[in-house]
Design a binder for these strands. Sequence first.
DNA 1: CTAAGATATGAAGAATTCTTCAGTTTAGGG
DNA 2: CCCTAAACTGAAGAATTCTTCATATCTTAG
Lengths: 222, 222
Amino acid sequence: MPLSPPDTLKPRKAPRQTRAAVTLDAIFEATIQVLLSEGERRLTTTRVAERAGVSVGTMYQYYPHKQALLYAVLQSHLTHISAAIEAACLTARGQGVTHMGELLVQTFLDTKIERLDVTKALYLIAEDLDTRSLLAATTERNVAAAASMLATASDARFENVQAVAFTLFSAIAGSTRIVFERGVSLPALKELRRELTLMCRSYLLNASLSAVASAERAHSVS
Amino acid sequence: MPLSPPDTLKPRKAPRQTRAAVTLDAIFEATIQVLLSEGERRLTTTRVAERAGVSVGTMYQYYPHKQALLYAVLQSHLTHISAAIEAACLTARGQGVTHMGELLVQTFLDTKIERLDVTKALYLIAEDLDTRSLLAATTERNVAAAASMLATASDARFENVQAVAFTLFSAIAGSTRIVFERGVSLPALKELRRELTLMCRSYLLNASLSAVASAERAHSVS
DNA sequence: CTAAGATATGAAGAATTCTTCAGTTTAGGG
DNA sequence: CCCTAAACTGAAGAATTCTTCATATCTTAG
């Protein structure tokens, strides 16, 4: 479900020729670079165009205004990630929850790191009011993929898979963001992956229905 | 540690008279309201002043520019939260990790909800490059408080308390943010609290040193 | 090779925003 | 009550940014 943008944010036209596609790529890339080097406040259409090596007018041929461009850049990245998650979730159907949790963490982190600059740049514009619905829809999509996978787990059954999937996803995406925003070092990354994996595994095992009984038993003892 | 702002973001002067303090309060409040109703892009000094019922010049008496104002607003909120967390952490020393986890989740959520409008508004400006160090320092402070508490747990010992505390905090703060940004409903909140509590408890119990052995045993069986 | 459509240009007007400061008003100690 | 420091005002200049469009250049089907 690629979710078409609201009318105001729709592109004016799609590139027909190859060179136009190349130009658009350059503009996307320039957007990222300007965001990283200048910050959101100094992200202007002129600066982007200059960095992309094209004229401002060119961008306005494809997008009616800056917002629409940003929306497109963000959407492209989010779609990429969701696709990766969906693919991964399909491979793990019927497996145990430990494997599933590990896979989710792994896939999410790998995809984010793959284009670390894009990831970091987009955190800077993700809050924009215009992008709210886009973010919400993406979350929806990722949660659906995870939930559908979790429902097939060989060693667990959940009362509310949707809620579990959502919690899992929030925790992964949320803490990843916090770590990435403070600046990622290799050791920090390894630690994040390790702890996040552990956290997901623990949570999934405990959220499973069979675990509820034993947990309550344990609790009433103390 | 209130962390003094970098030179460029320092206030020009502090209010001396009561009315000045009142004015500043109004300006802070107006900043939040404008952020919520207009978004970051349309947050201008003039609009803030207008909403606060004062003249633009007034704001510039206290802050050299918009950035400094935003920094102050953000700092005030973050400080408030950190203080609450630190206080809570002190009350739980020597208790079990289940209680500790629950307390952290509870305190964090309660404090965020207490001023939900402020929380939501500040998410909109938290990404600013200028606020990076502020966010980092705050995280530091919260993690330190949590770590110090966890080290006294009656029923667990951790190899790396710092890492555990950090993971815990990231998961809580990160998923809270994701939930709050998509819009908070009462049921969504209750679910967040419930699942987050469960997740923290599971994680803490499993991250404890005594758990490592049993986990490895369980793993080698399958 | 050529015409039509696609793409690119960039100067310039409109709009918005930031920030200052000279002058006015207010508070509160003596 | 008076005086000084503090607080407040808001018009206006400087700076930045957005967006358009008339014009020029390129691509490619036929």
